[in-house]
């Protein structure tokens, strides 16, 4: 419909101009036996296009074998964390106009998880750490019959930030500790533990604090802030990790 309108308007304002950018994408095809390598693609884009749009254009118009995960296309499902110009971001939340277009653009898979194909990594180790921290409510009180548990606005606000996590792995795979020690739980697992440790309805904070007191737990964190910078949901991850550390020292929530 919008097309008709454009044609019908005689003095239509000038539409934003498409321009060509070069995307350097780190390719890897497990079937080929070749090492991963960089390949350059020229693609026509608009300033407001997302990196995801550019990847789709390449896949749909130039090379169908280019492989990446995506679903929602607006930053809520966590499918498309990747390294864009050396920084972990969601491809669907990174607009071209927000990148330095004077430089070539580099896109590669997130680091620290086994590379499967092009921009796809094996997420299983990431989810395994998540499962370890018992990421589910463990409340021993019996809720009032057919009613919700009561929680004050302040108690609810206490863990609001860490409920936003979409398990995209941008944080964990930006962490230098995780790169060198794949056993480290990583920031995402700690964020999801935090979400329950500080939920006033939960009774097993202690168990999770014990788990995170492990040698692969929170003490490995060196506060480099990479995770907080990477998080597309704006979660204050480093602060959450610090809160967990303090709770371990206190011995309770």
């Amino acid at each position: 419909m919008s097309n008709d309108v454009i044609e019908a308007t005689p003095e239509a304002p000038v539409a934003p101009q498409a321009f060509t950018v070069t995307l350097n994408i780190r390719r890897y095809d497990p079937d080929s036996g070749e090492e991963a390598h960089w390949q350059a693609f020229d693609v026509d884009v608009f300033p407001t296009d997302r990196i995801l749009d550019a990847l789709h254009k390449i896949k749909w118009e130039q090379d169908g074998s280019l492989t990446f995960r995506r679903s929602c296309a607006h930053g809520v499902c966590g499918s498309d964390a990747m390294r864009i110009n050396g920084r972990n971001r969601l491809a669907c939340k990174t607009l071209l106009k927000d990148l330095d277009l004077a430089q070539p653009i580099y896109v590669e898979a997130i680091k620290g998880l086994p590379l499967e194909k092009d921009l796809v990594v094996d997420m299983e180790p990431f989810f395994a750490s998540y499962r370890e921290v018992q990421p589910f409510l463990q409340a021993h009180s019996v809720p009032p019959k057919d009613k919700e548990r009561i929680q004050s606005v302040a108690d609810r606000a206490r863990f609001d930030d860490t409920t936003k996590c979409i398990l995209c792995a941008a944080c964990t795979s930006s962490c230098p500790v995780f790169w060198t020690d794949g056993q480290y739980f990583g920031p995402a697992a700690i964020v999801n533990a935090h979400r329950f440790i500080f939920d006033s309805r939960d009774d097993e904070a202690k168990v999770r604090l014990d788990i995170l007191n492990d040698k692969e737990g929170v003490w490995r964190c060196r506060t480099t802030f990479n995770c907080t910078e990477a998080c597309p949901r704006g979660i204050q991850i480093t602060a959450a990790i610090a809160e967990v550390k303090q709770a371990i020292i206190r011995g309770h929530r």
Partner: peptide, 17 residues
């Protein structure tokens, strides 16, 4: 109620409902 009991963090009223 099932979802709340399972842990869903709904927004709350001043009375905590």
């Amino acid at each position: 109620i099932d979802l709340e009991n399972m842990g869903l963090p709904f927004n709350r009223t001043p009375e905590g409902k």
